[in-house]
Simulated assay, not measured.
Amino acid sequence: MNKFGSNMNPFWSDVFSAYDEFKHELVVEASDVWQIPIFLSSKIVIGRKPFWKRKLFDAGCRSINDIYNSQGELMSFEEFRRTYPGCLNALTFETLRCLVQRISIPSEFGGKKPIGPFIHPALLQILNADCRQYYDALLNVRYKKTDSPLPSQIKWNSILSSNIFWGHIYYRYKRCSKNTTLIWFQDRIVHRILTTNTFASKFMDVSDLCTFCGRERETIQHLMVACEEVGAMWQSVKDMIRDRLKITLELNPQEIILGFDPALYECPRETATAIQRLILIGKWYIYSCKVRKEKPRFVNLLQKMKILTQAEFMYDHDKNEREIRVRDINMVLCCNQTC
């Protein structure tokens, strides 16, 4: 990681350091090394196909350990032929022997200096898994000892001056939409990796001032809540929810940024989900306006919400979820579209 220098993106710096900690936490057992399979293994390929010999398999030669002798050295062809008679010819054995030599065997387990890197089975398991399992594995190593909160959680707790029940926050915003673009956008807000002018100015020759007002430093909380150019839009959203659904929301910074208002606890689940989706689309719309360098307007937000909710409606086969989409669309179509 040192070769990237001190100007590495903080997010990737955190990922790489957690990955290093994960590797150091692994305990390499002899069984992990010697039990690497010979057959149908991605490490041992002959002629672009995984190695497989039924005769050798039936003779009991199934792992790397089985072609090492008692001195911890690879068998010669003569030793191999005495141990597994008639299983392989000399050419195939030498090919197999060369492939096995390329797999690293740590010296403390009797092996010689490796040519290729040894990869712990637990590491292979998460590298072949999906992103969620890989991310969870890194987090478990980084925070399992003290159960301490994530750096982003500490920062938001400080900025918003409150103790936040993060498990509930994650659950709510991941459930309110099946649009991966919206979910990933909210992930970037929660983990504080959403690019703003303040962040970009550290690496690029750009101003750190707000794209909309041009007076304050552009942080996530300023862009989404504090800027006066977005304040009018959020007031219109609050008025629409009050007029259409008879629900009074405060929509303070915590509720907008994290996407959940305590008043929604008293609402039916479908209503709360529809409101959360509206707030999420509102934040995404604000950021898209920033990218296009346009001022956010309430009328345009309603058009975006209509398009996105109708798109989810078309591809949603769950009856209850479709009813939530209908509620979303009706809230947009029936409201007074004035800013």
Rank of each mutant, 00 (worst) to 15 (best):
N2A: 09
K3D: 11
S6P: 14
N9F: 14
S13T: 15
A18F: 00
E25Q: 11
E25K: 08
L26I: 04
V27L: 08
E29R: 11
V33T: 01
Q35K: 02
I36Q: 00
P37A: 00
F39L: 01
K43T: 01
K43A: 04
V45S: 13
V45A: 15
I46A: 01
G47Y: 11
F57S: 07
S63L: 03
D66L: 07
S70E: 13
G72Q: 07
L74E: 04
E78D: 11
R81T: 05
R81H: 04
G86W: 10
A90N: 12
L91K: 14
L99A: 03
P106E: 06
E108R: 12
G111M: 01
P117Y: 03
N128K: 12
Y134G: 02
Y134K: 08
S148H: 09
P149F: 10
F165Y: 10
H168K: 05
I169M: 05
Y173F: 14
T181Q: 15
W184C: 15
Q186R: 03
D187I: 10
R188D: 06
L194F: 08
T196A: 05
V206S: 02
S207V: 02
C210G: 07
T211L: 03
C213R: 10
E216V: 14
R217S: 15
T219K: 14
G231L: 06
A232R: 04
M233C: 08
Q235E: 06
Q235L: 03
R244I: 12
K246A: 02
L249N: 00
E250D: 06
N252V: 14
N252L: 13
A272R: 00
A274W: 00
I275E: 01
R277P: 00
L278T: 04
I279D: 00
I281T: 15
K283H: 00
I286G: 04
N300Y: 11
Q303I: 03
E312F: 02
M314N: 15
N320P: 05
R327N: 02
I329E: 09
I329G: 06
N330A: 09
M331S: 15
M331K: 09
L333V: 13
C335M: 09
Q337Y: 07
